[in-house]
Amino acid sequence: MIRKLLAKDHQQVMQFLADEPSINLFIIGDIEAFGYDSTFQALWGEFSDSGDLVAVLLKYHNSFIPYAKDAFDIHGFTEIIKSFTTEPLLSGKADIVEQFERIQGLKLGRKQETYFAECRTDAHLGRSELPIKKATLMDVDRIIELRSTIDEFVVTDTSRDMLIQSMETKTGRTYFLEENGILTACASTTAENSVSAMIVGVCTNKNHRQKGLATTVLQKLTQDVLTENKILCLFYDNPAAGRIYKRLGFQDIGKWTMYR
């Protein structure tokens, strides 16, 4: 049976998601931030005959994330998605979301596969005396300006508003280094919740590369988040970046697939 999840289901839902807190970072974070009765967010659960939760589907605006530990009613979830759109933004653990590729009636966008890694220890983190700062709302425009110069980044009209929202809701933070008022490197978190946080936006000013600045900022950010007893997570598809992250203590825990 699939039904819409309500606040009364919260404890059961969180216990179900807790087995893989990193993989479920977005679902956990959105539940904590926006609950079960939002105009732009909704959740559904599949239950067994004995009342055990089998699978969860999150709708956040036009994006959907399914999660299950074993077999689930993919056709039931598909009908829910199709009731809103036939061209969803779909993402999740690779072996779950890739099952939707064979479903008729869904038009999935460009497929992007990434590695999913997490860090639970600071044993491999170095220390630096460089003056790393935590960004405030006054720094938002400089952060967006730096990100806009990075070829691999996609900065949209909503990027600034999303960065402001993450700071105001404390679901994200950015640390940076600067020189003469110009940002030289920065790294951010997003989707922060009570148990985990996602690393994003690690970048270096093109005029200050090959100095280890972004790694230095990332180490400070990682250290501070771990101190709060949260797990750090990140996506990567660049093997060179993966090697840097692994030297800092990140370990691959699976693959994440997105259709955009």
Rank of each mutant, 00 (worst) to 15 (best):
K4W: 04
A7L: 13
K8T: 15
D9T: 06
Q11W: 00
M14S: 04
E20A: 11
S22R: 00
I28R: 06
D30R: 09
I31V: 07
F34R: 14
G35T: 07
Y36K: 13
A42N: 13
G45W: 07
A55R: 03
A55N: 04
L58N: 05
H61K: 12
S63F: 07
P66W: 11
Y67S: 02
T78I: 05
I80G: 10
T85M: 09
V97N: 12
E101W: 02
R102T: 14
I103G: 01
G105A: 02
K111R: 14
F116Q: 08
F116S: 06
F116C: 06
D122T: 03
S128E: 00
D139C: 00
D139K: 01
V140H: 09
I144W: 03
T171L: 10
T174W: 00
L177A: 06
L177F: 06
E179D: 12
E179V: 01
A185I: 05
S188Y: 09
T189M: 11
V195R: 13
V200N: 11
C203A: 15
C203N: 11
H208D: 07
K211V: 04
L221I: 04
V225T: 14
V225P: 07
C233I: 11
L234I: 05
F235N: 12
Y236M: 09
P239S: 10
Y245P: 05
K255L: 09
